[in-house]
Design a protein around this nucleic acid. Structure first.
Lengths: 200, 200
DNA sequence: GTCTATACTTCGATAGAC
DNA sequence: GTCTATCGAAGTATAGAC
């Protein structure tokens, strides 16, 4: 049986280097460019080490995904607890690196059905946490729930920010982006007032 | 020199079968699952035939992309010329198959830099054509251009529809989707009246 | 014009050396 | 605990047979 094979420790610096290299390659050349050989080369290591620290390539993807989900949820919680939660949330969701990686993971989910469940479940966690936070915030601001419900705000903000980042980062496209950002920010300003925190 | 190699005719039924198989695999398992062997197997052909009809795998992707762009532009033009252009456009952009394929091509653009330019340019063409159409439509409906500009409408509609399709088709996720769709359709109804054409 | 035999490269993974 | 030698499978692509 193959699962008897020994595996490296979770605290190993080599292991962390492999995970970091995986993220870089995904961002630069897409998930399909993540091969054991390329990851190792990027980290300055031998290819076989990838399979020492991760039983399969799926395990490597999952390791990266988990650390990013932890960080992302933490960051989203901070945004929701900020002085101006709407501005903070908008800034967070427009972060190019995080969003681009998320898009790659979604594309990966269509390719590796095994890890699709994990990606889907983390997406649900992000949405649920954001919804919970927005419910409090919008109520505090006295936003009419018959018009802008928290769930609609969540979905709209995610859609728009992710789409813009994807078009710009992946295709180098920007037509209509400035106008759309201005449009969204006009709404945020109407509810939360002028931005006080500097844009991230 | 390799480019001397002969290539099959563009009208060949075998060639068309290979392109069709490529689309199916992309939708089911992502662009990275498109290999010469899998494409051929799906079409019930030998793997080497892929390289007879297409010099490289990039050529195969481009062939599929071009036919889909043609069809998509045609379909978008029909929507803009319809009795209720906003409803028609919204329906068109929510088509799961077309959108899912577009998302795969965008992910592919991050992986195959060679064909990225072609994908980006077609995205610009879609946007420009939709913008041109919406300018006429919104003006006809007397929409205040200080509020909803055509370019913002275009970007918003694309963002929302693509994002929803992506979440649902790829991740099987649907929280907040119905509410968001209802939200968008309320705006469309306000401008264009009750939907008369049946949803596609 | 259409297809196949074949070459060569790269991949994921494992067993075993240090 | 850490790393390497090596294998079998799968990938792209070409030259040549029909």
């Amino acid at each position: 049986m193959s699962s008897d094979r020994r595996i490296g420790t979770e605290t190993s610096a080599t292991r962390a280097a492999l995970v970091a290299a995986t993220e870089e390659i995904m961002l630069e050349d897409g998930y399909a460019a993540v091969t054991s050989r390329r990851v190792a080369a990027r980290a300055g290591l031998k290819a076989q080490l990838v399979h020492y620290y991760f039983r399969t390539m799926d395990d490597l993807f999952l390791a990266l995904h988990r650390t990013r989900v932890e960080q992302g949820l933490e960051r989203q919680a901070q945004a929701l607890a900020a002085d101006q939660p709407l501005w903070a949330l908008w800034d967070t969701s427009r972060d190019p690196r995080g969003t681009a990686l998320t898009m790659e993971f979604i594309a990966l989910a269509n390719h590796r059905k095994v890890i699709r469940a994990e990606i889907a479940s983390s997406a649900e966690r992000f949405r649920a946490a954001q919804l919970e936070g927005l419910e409090v915030v919008l109520e505090r601001y006295g936003v009419d729930p018959d018009d802008w419900t928290p769930i609609v705000c969540t979905v709209l903000m995610s859609s728009i920010s992710r789409f813009l980042v994807m078009e710009f980062e992946t295709l180098g496209m920007s037509s209509g982006h400035a106008e759309t950002v201005a449009f969204v920010e006009r709404y945020i300003r109407k509810v939360e007032g002028e931005r006080r925190c500097p844009a991230q």
